[in-house]
Design a protein around this nucleic acid. Structure first.
Length: 184
DNA sequence: GTGCAGATCCCCT
DNA sequence: GGGGATCTGCACG
């Protein structure tokens, strides 16, 4: 079993962490089954300088995890039916920040993921923020979970050859900030 | 392939 | 009471 990435990795600028998470592994253990996948696309959400961020309006019951310890999970519920998975990451000089995991390529446990999704294994089991959480069985139960170990953690993967930065998807504010990162 | 409607509910104003 | 860091299925072509 690969070891988890240490907490210090997440104690940096949120956008830098978002970029560096590309190619890393997400590892999930459920009922003795191991699932894993490589991170293909991420987005950074910051604090006062980012109107698109949940943290922009200040700390609330929903977003308080974004203000908590780095290297933990921020999971939120949206559109009445979907969960999205973020990794809390921020520079020590800032109060809040998180990286949304948008797309993951399955490595191990694809059969379980397909079952979780209620579809066949097409190879595209986790290519969206809410698809990813469904495939990896991540719900608000995992909100606040430590990602440096345990049943859900992030481990080393490979170094992407090329990274493209662009505008974030699905937002209406701060649409010009190039805080979406993907492999190329 | 593109485009749009509908599902569905928690949080914040 | 409004809106959302989304996904799916269906229509069209």
């Amino acid at each position: 079993m690969k070891s988890a990435i240490p907490r210090e990795f997440y104690r940096r600028d949120t956008a830098e962490v978002a970029q560096d998470l590309l190619g890393k592994r997400i590892v999930r253990r459920v009922q003795g089954i191991r699932m894993s996948g490589f991170i293909l696309e991420t987005e950074a959400y910051k604090h006062l300088e980012d109107p698109a961020s949940h943290a922009f309006g200040g700390i609330t019951e929903r977003n308080k995890t974004m203000f908590g310890e780095v290297g933990t999970a921020y999971v939120y519920f949206t559109y009445g039916m979907h969960f999205c998975f973020n990794v809390v990451a921020r520079h020590p000089d800032t109060l809040a920040g998180a990286v949304l995991i948008r797309s993951v390529v399955p490595e191990h446990g694809a059969a379980r993921m397909a079952r979780n999704r209620g579809i066949g294994d097409s190879g595209r089991l986790s290519d969206g923020p809410a698809k990813m959480t469904q495939a990896f069985e991540i719900t608000k139960e995992q909100c606040g979970a430590d990602l440096t170990g345990g049943e859900l953690y992030i481990a080393e993967g490979f170094r992407p050859a090329n990274v493209v930065a662009g505008p974030r998807v699905g937002i209406t504010k701060a649409t010009q900030m190039p805080w979406n990162f993907r492999m190329a």
